[in-house]
């Protein structure tokens, strides 16, 4: 039995050639990247100089003033963000956006490259016009999460009924990660058109969308949907019920306290927990006897929040906790909560 292995010689030669080629390609690529980077820095600097000059002389920038090569969203958008708070910027910004940035962004929305769409939505964050409503609506439904998230801010800024409703629907549809980001944007946004949200509550039946509406109204500190929420505190949908409980507890009204006390004996531990927390946030120390009963709740996390609520009730609540005998199973928990809270207060 013989075995012809002369082909291995060919492999050895091929490997040497490949190794040499690899080194050559690396050097060429390194040079290309070096020049690409340099070019971008040069163009950014050029655009920066022109914008600074326009700002100093308080003059608008026209299409022709900026070199064609700088008409790129990744160059202009960061510069616009940089100067956003400068005096006299609005006039420069308006011309720069309407003549260069927004046309680029509108075109990029249709791009198959997601990074381009991402730059488009970032450009809308800087400036947008009424005609951009359908563009933003499209971006809010983009498959790339990052683009959806960035589209919330300009949509709320434009604040049309369609966009506000789309944002509410998207928020309700999303999983926890996206929902928390959407709500975070609301938190940073002061002038949300709450009328649209209340109007939606009048007709909306989807419990998740209703819950989202309460969450947003809570962030905006708007209590205009109080009556709707009082009804929803007894909803069968847990998410809606808990959101409504949290929402009504923004108002320190007797009927709210009565409602919350009633919910302390609810079947669902989540409901008992949320009602306890709400009473703590309201500082409703008159409900101390009812909350104290939860110190022996079957769920440890409800017991823990009952202790925290009592601490929030002030000296009266603390006194009640200090009186718990050492033999009580909840004693250790009370001591730990008191230790941390009082330690923090001392600091």
């Amino acid at each position: 039995m013989t075995f012809d292995y002369s082909f291995l010689e060919f492999f050895v030669i091929a490997e040497i050639i490949i190794a040499i080629l690899l080194v050559i390609v690396t050097i060429v690529m390194k040079i290309i990247y070096y020049f690409r980077k340099k070019r971008k820095i040069r163009l950014t600097k050029k655009a920066d100089d022109i914008i600074q000059d326009a700002l100093i002389h308080d003059k608008p920038i026209t299409d022709n003033e900026l070199p064609r090569a700088t008409h790129r969203m990744d160059i202009l958008q960061p510069l616009m963000e940089k100067y956003q708070n400068e005096r006299g910027w609005s006039r420069t910004l308006e011309t720069l956006s309407t003549s260069i940035l927004l046309p680029l962004a509108r075109k990029a929305i249709e791009s198959r490259r997601w990074i381009k769409r991402c730059w488009a939505v970032k450009s809308f964050e800087v400036h947008r016009e009424q005609q951009d409503e359908p563009h933003l609506e499209k971006l809010l439904s983009d498959k790339v999460p990052l683009i959806q998230f960035h589209a919330v801010w300009p949509s709320l800024q434009l604040g049309t009924e369609t966009l506000v409703n789309t944002v509410i629907t998207r928020t309700a549809e999303e999983r926890r990660l996206a929902q928390s980001i959407f709500l975070e944007v609301f938190e940073q946004h002061q002038d949300v058109k709450c009328d649209y949200i209340v109007k939606r509550l009048n007709t909306e039946e989807n419990p998740f969308i209703r819950a989202t509406c309460y969450k947003i109204l809570m962030i905006e500190k708007q209590t205009s949907a109080f009556d709707h929420a009082m009804k929803d505190t007894t909803s069968d949908n847990v998410e809606l019920q808990l959101s409504a409980i949290r929402y009504v507890s923004m108002e320190d009204k007797p009927q709210v306290i009565d409602k919350l006390v009633g919910l302390l004996t609810a079947e669902l531990p989540e409901t008992r927990l949320t009602a306890t927390r709400a009473l703590g946030n309201l500082g409703a120390s008159q409900t101390l006897p009812e909350v104290k009963k939860l110190l022996h709740d079957e769920k440890w996390w409800v017991r823990l929040d009952a202790v925290k609520t009592l601490v929030k009730f002030g000296p009266e609540g603390r006194q009640a906790l200090h009186q718990i005998p050492e033999t009580d199973e909840v004693y250790q928990l009370c001591q730990q909560v008191l230790g941390v809270k009082e330690g923090y207060h001392a600091r």
Partner: peptide
């Protein structure tokens, strides 16, 4: 390319940065 030409930090900072 994303990192070198895309200013990544621009996209994940601010309001949309999840905890």
């Amino acid at each position: 390319n994303e990192i070198q030409l895309g200013n990544v930090e621009n996209f994940v900072t601010g309001d949309i940065s999840p905890p």
